[in-house]
Amino acid sequence: MNAPLPRRKLRVATTSLAGCFGCHMSFLDIDERLLDLLELVEFDRSPLTDIKHCGTRGPCDIGIIEGGVCNAENVHVLQEFRRNCKILVALGACAVNGGLPAQRNHLDLRDILATVYQTEAGLAQGTQIPNDPELPLPLNQVHPIHEVVKVDYFLPGCPPPADAIWKFLTDLIAGRTPQLGHGLIHYD
């Protein structure tokens, strides 16, 4: 009667929005522990799998977001993750508070576009602001992901150290509220 519940593997999706993939690299820095992790989880949409959309193979348990929200595509991807993931995690400085891309926020986007594509010295003749409908439009400001969707957990750091990511995920998978403690929480 004390038989453990049959454990299915948890589905985990990851993506990088306005980020540099540094958080994903730090994730890979868990090294051989990745194999232990794969005993417990299977990856849905992620740079590791090249699956293009999450949720197409059923709902995900954990969605991990690197990067902030700087353009319309980021909004769509983030909303797709929120729709399809039971738990959404902001991973790293940019997802948590906008990070490096948000350093443009004190500038007017119109000035940035004009400078980069129209008035900067050295531009080719006839260069104009790209307006192809295929391209996602940038938002007036960069936002952390909690301003766009509800976020359940936050793991700061630029990037968060691999040990912090490991501790965080193993706690979460084991059903514990993640506890980081000194050395694992940092903002830089």
């Binding site: 909004v75 986007l109 576009l113 004009a114 307006n131 409908p133 439009l137 938002l139």
Partner: peptide
């Protein structure tokens, strides 16, 4: 939950600069 800001309005400056008004904009 609702976003902290008006998502569509947040594209206003890019729309103005690119002249786009398609669905993706």
């Amino acid at each position: 939950f609702e976003p902290a800001f008006d998502l569509d309005a947040a594209l206003s400056q890019a729309r103005q600069m690119t002249g786009r008004d398609d669905a993706g904009a």
